[in-house]
Design a protein around this nucleic acid. Structure first.
Length: 446
DNA sequence: GGATGCGGGGAGA
DNA sequence: TCTCCCCGCATCC
């Protein structure tokens, strides 16, 4: 059975009738794996069919169900590493034309030598891109995801949007222009932030259970480091195990030797001292991506501020404080999935986790490995189900079909569901273990 | 300019 | 027939 959110009875997005539910799920921006969710009709993100993943519309010739497929992630052709050991993973443009323009551009990693951006396609659903399905009824918005992403999370949507809106990508000449941009960023933050917050209306669960134990959150939450010098982020109380970053060479086979997620490698490269000259200006005529990504740091405020974030988002004071070093912050932030509930709950897969093996493929598709150097895994969003199924009503493509004999209607067949009921306890143990390893793995950063 | 939604249509199983 | 994908168009921001 696919992972369900609220306690809806079994349903599938393609069912002729879907149940009417009394409880809704917390909106998940980074849903991964076979996931089913039910959101309230007023959930702004759900109404916009928002996702942290770069999802493009796919025509399924069904006007009742909106289908989207994952575009993957933009990565460096050289698979270079950022100063902290993570890799480049940008958000591909949804527009085909824009996406083509993205490809071939120089890698934004200033340490990268000759790398170019290329799309790492998603093949997480039996060799096809992971798909999201959205279905609206009068009383709920149904969401279903099929497949597990086999690639890193791209940067959050807000990053690319603001970057574009600020005209990043063109060469900046002179400090005055840089300062003007910073002022524009600050202005945008002040303008956008309240609005975003007002739209955050769909979370009926103000404090979902944390994925990281409170005792491990404490250090982070009490961190007094400056936003750009913080080195205690995610610091667990457990001593860190030594970690040696597996050197990755572009000459290596890129998609071979996948390590199954059940045995994730210890992760996370040690956080290196970041030597980056913020005053450096581009010297050539091609656009310098680091100029663009300097702008990414403040825009994190442009993302929906998630309730369960483990760390406070940068404040306006942070961005303008005398200690501000946007570039460093960018590097710090970039290696993490930007601005999302799940991402803030779970450290970046790039740092330690693995990408879940593409399971659940009825066709027996054997997934490719994208990051052979380590079994990278990150926990998928797991919202504890709320088993409330009273007042079950069913909708037939928008029609309100009140039903009283629920069991008779639950004979839906799930041929591609990820979990059976019996699997759930095992899965929980599995994800708990993964989560524990993930947390420990993060200690390698510090 | 890009995101998004809709729809036509081709290809393959 | 179903699912996948590509493409064009319209709308909105």
């Amino acid at each position: 059975m696919a992972e369900g959110g609220v306690a809806t009875p079994d349903w599938d997005i393609n069912d002729a009738v879907v149940p009417r539910v009394a409880a809704f799920d917390t909106f998940g921006e980074w849903c991964d794996g076979h996931v089913r969710r039910v959101y309230p009709p007023g959930c702004e993100e759900a109404r916009r069919h928002a996702s942290g993943w770069a999802m493009r519309n796919t025509n399924n010739h069904n006007v009742h169900i909106l289908k989207k497929s994952c575009l993957g992630v933009l990565v460096c052709s050289q698979r270079c590493r950022l100063p902290d050991g993570s890799r480049v993973h940008l958000r591909p443009a949804i527009c085909d034309k824009a996406r083509k323009k993205q490809q071939g551009k120089p890698c934004p990693n200033r340490l990268c030598n000759g790398g170019r951006l290329e799309v790492l396609p998603c093949r997480g659903h039996c060799g096809y891109p992971v798909t999201h399905f959205w279905r609206h009824t009068d009383h709920a918005i149904f969401f279903q995801a099929k497949g597990a992403h086999d690639h890193p999370r791209p940067e959050a949507k807000g990053a690319s949007e603001v970057r574009r809106s600020l005209g990043a990508g063109r060469r900046v000449r002179g400090l005055a222009l840089l300062l003007a941009r910073e002022a524009a960023i600050a202005d945008k933050i002040l303008t956008v932030k309240p609005d975003k917050q007002t739209h955050k209306v769909c979370n009926p669960h103000p404090q979902p259970p944390p994925l990281i134990p409170d005792n491990q959150r404490a250090v982070q939450l009490t961190c007094t480091c400056g936003p750009f010098e913080c080195s205690c982020r995610w610091r667990p109380e457990q001593p860190a195990e030594p970690y040696a970053t597996a050197a990755w060479s572009p000459a290596e086979p890129q998609y071979a030797g996948y390590a199954p997620p059940a045995h994730p490698a210890p992760p996370a490269p040690a956080l290196q001292a970041q030597h980056y000259d913020p005053t450096a200006l581009p010297a050539d005529d091609i656009f310098h991506p680091e100029e663009i990504f300097q702008l990414d740091q403040p825009i994190r405020l442009d993302f929906p501020l998630e309730e369960h974030t483990l760390e406070s988002p940068p404040t306006f004071a942070d961005l303008n404080g005398e200690n501000s070093r946007p570039e460093d912050t960018y590097w710090m932030d970039w290696q993490r999935p930007a601005g999302s509930s799940e991402s803030s709950q779970t450290p970046s897969p790039e740092l330690f986790g693995g990408y879940p093996q593409t399971e659940f493929c009825e066709q027996g598709y054997i997934p490719q490995a994208y990051y052979p150097e380590g079994a990278q895994y990150y926990p998928t969003e797991r919202t504890p189900p709320v088993m409330e199924t009273q007042d079950q009503r069913y909708y037939r493509y928008g029609q309100d079909c009140a039903q009283t004999n629920v069991p008779d209607l639950q004979s839906w067949n799930y041929t591609d569901c990820a979990f059976t009921t019996n699997d759930m306890s095992e899965c929980k143990q599995y994800f708990d273990a993964q989560q524990h390893q993930a947390i420990n793995g993060f200690s390698g950063l510090l």
